[in-house]
């Protein structure tokens, strides 16, 4: 059987090779598909920090994804319209700079995750699922009723935001940016999983009492994981909005939270590259089966059923046949 790290390398090499091949053969749509995979995998990596390491089944991660999207949309729309966001105490006209947008998305995602986590992490099990879902839906309905930023219609950004030294309108260059951010997020997950913090978090999901008896506070461990998770997912949201040059309330919808979770379940919960495998499979099915039938989600549902019944470790688990070290 293949070792998980080899499989991860093959997956990431494949995700890199396909758009490079598409660039050489002048197939920009394939590059966009690969970029979509990288961004959605990044969102999955974010959720996997909470779900895989901390056992936190959050059905509200679309809130952070949407916050990232709207951080991009609001900053860029003001900049493109030369319409200041605020004038006092200083003039701020928004920005078209990706690094500033990413930083804003990460900070806003972190703040939202902190506030949501402070309340929701006092519950567990089905109550935690429901309370995170409720928070996600609160953001969804708020964005619908926010006419200043497009309400139900969303916000369009005419030109993709910029990154110093790169032409982000070139699909391969934008893909490269997203791929590097995905690698950094995977590195963060890998480091966290092996750190004392990650081990304690994993221990806390197995027994709160034993971890408390060793002098640690499971609530604090989970809150930190939830905030990091929210930050990574918000960054993915900002990139997703930039990819589409459009942001709308659907980024906050519970279906989005469900999709991010599906990536992880398909790929393998707590597997480092589980979200990459899951997002790649999801986008591939959406692209191919979507062309065959509008009801392609039926096939996705059947696949999900098969994975849950026969491959509990997801695609990666089925291929490496080994329990994840941190599940």
């Amino acid at each position: 059987m293949m070792r998980e790290r080899h499989l991860n390398l093959i997956l990431l090499a494949g995700l890199l090779a396909i758009p490079v091949w598409a660039w050489i053969t002048d197939e920009p749509f394939t590059i966009t598909l690969a970029t979509r995979v990288a961004i959605l995998a990044l969102a999955g990596v974010g959720l996997n920090i909470a779900l895989g390491l901390g056992g936190l089944v959050s059905l509200g991660h679309a809130a952070f994804f949407g916050i990232g999207g709207y951080a991009m949309g609001i900053l860029a729309s003001h900049a493109q319209n030369y319409d200041p966001i605020f004038t006092t105490p200083f003039l701020f006209e928004g920005t078209k700079s990706m690094p500033v947008i990413w930083l804003t998305a990460i900070v806003m995602g972190g703040i939202a995750a902190l506030l949501i986590g402070l309340i929701s992490l006092r519950t567990s099990g089905v109550y935690f699922i429901m309370i995170t879902l409720a928070f996600g839906q609160m953001f969804y309905f708020f964005s619908i009723s926010w006419p200043a930023y497009g309400g139900e219609d969303g916000l369009s950004i005419w030109v993709r935001n910029g990154f110093p030294g790169l032409n982000t309108l070139d699909p391969i260059q934008f893909f490269a940016l997203c791929f590097v951010l995905l690698l950094l997020a995977l590195g963060l997950h890998w480091t966290l999983a092996r750190s004392g913090f990650g081990l304690a978090l994993n221990a806390a999901r197995q027994s709160e009492a034993r971890v408390e008896a060793a002098g640690l506070t499971p609530f604090r461990l989970r809150l930190v994981a939830f905030v990091i998770s929210g930050m990574v997912t918000a960054l993915a949201g900002a990139l997703f909005a930039d990819l589409n040059r459009f942001v709308s309330p659907t980024m906050f919808a519970w279906q989005m939270s469900g999709e991010i979770m599906v990536f992880i379940i398909l790929g393998g919960v707590a597997r480092l590259c589980g979200p990459v495998a899951g997002a790649a499979l999801f986008i591939t099915l959406e692209h191919w089966l979507g062309g065959v039938s509008d009801y392609w989600h039926v096939f996705l549902g059947a696949l999900l059923l098969l994975v849950v019944l026969f491959a509990r470790g997801g695609l990666i688990g089925a291929l490496v046949k080994k329990e994840p070290a941190h599940d």
Binding site: G196, L199, A203, A214, D327
Partner: peptide, 17 residues
Amino acid sequence: RCFAPLTVAENLSATAR
């Protein structure tokens, strides 16, 4: 009551001070 899915080294490190 060890943390069964963690390795021996990880069990020792998880709650170390």
